[in-house]
Design a protein around this nucleic acid. Sequence first.
DNA 1: TTAGTTACTTTAATTTTGCAAGTCACTTAT
DNA 2: ATAAGTGACTTGCAAAATTAAAGTAACTAA
Lengths: 131, 131
Amino acid sequence: MPALLYDGSQNQTFRSQCSIARALEIVGDKWTLLVVRDLMWHGKHTFKTLQESEEHMPSNTLAERLQRLTSWGLVQRRLYQENPARYEYHLTEEGRSFEPVLLGIMRWGHENLEGGLFDPKNRQASSGQTL
Amino acid sequence: MPALLYDGSQNQTFRSQCSIARALEIVGDKWTLLVVRDLMWHGKHTFKTLQESEEHMPSNTLAERLQRLTSWGLVQRRLYQENPARYEYHLTEEGRSFEPVLLGIMRWGHENLEGGLFDPKNRQASSGQTL
DNA sequence: TTAGTTACTTTAATTTTGCAAGTCACTTAT
DNA sequence: ATAAGTGACTTGCAAAATTAAAGTAACTAA
C-alpha cells in the first residue's frame, strides 16, 4: 500500500506529521467531499452533472477541486468520447477508500443537523426516495 | 436525539438537505477538525495550548473556530479560574460523537499520506511515542 | 448559418486567511 | 510601587481563496 504520489510536480510538503492535518490539506474545505460524494454514490461523473448538484458549486471551484483530486490520485479523468471531446471523472481505489469517512460524516450530520441519510447499497435515500 | 441548535442567534439556513454538505458548513475547512482532535485526544483545552499545536493555527482563526464550534454546540467554554479569568474548552457529547469520523480520517491519512497514527485508548502514537 | 452542448477559463468583486502586533486584566518579581 | 510576565484574545492589513457572471473552444444538430 504505497502512499499517494502528488502529481502536481514537486513533492508536497505537509504542515505536520498528523494524518488528519495531512488529509485536510486535500479535502479540508466546503466542497471537495461533495465531489467525492457525487462520484462515489450519485453516479455523477461529468463536469456538467457535478455542477448541477444541489449545492451548485461554482464552476471554477469545481474545476480546481477536480484538478486537485486528480493530482492527488483520488480521481481519474477519462476521455469517454472524441469529437467533441467529453470527459468523465472516476474515483480511484484511493478515492473509494474514503467511503467510510463519508459515511461517518453523513451519519453525524443526520444525527446532529437533521440532514438526510443515503443508503449506498440501494443508491437511494433511506426514506426510499431515489436520489 | 435533538438536532443541534445554532446559537449564533438566527436559525442557520443550510445550503442543502445533504448531511455531508451540512456537516461541512461547520467542519469543512483546514483547521476546525484539528481543534476537535486536540480537544478529543491531546488534552489541549486552553487557547494557549491549542495555539501551540504542531500546525500553529493563527490565533484569530483559532478564536473564530472555537466560537463557531461553541455556537454550534460541539464545544463548551468554561471559566476555570477567576482573577485572572482563564478559560477551558471542552467537547460536548455532540462534539465527542465526531470521534469515529476523526478516526476514519486518521486511518485514511495514515494509509495514503504516510501520516502518523494515534491510539486514543493509550493516548499515544502507535509507535509508542507519547504525544 | 444559427443554435445548442459540454467543459472549462477568465474577470472582477468579495470574503476569508494569515501574520504580526496590540490590548486587557490580572499576578509575580524587583 | 513599578516592571515584567501570562493567558486570552482582538486588531490591522496584505495576500490568498472564493464567488458570480460571462466568455471561450470545439464540436454537433437543425
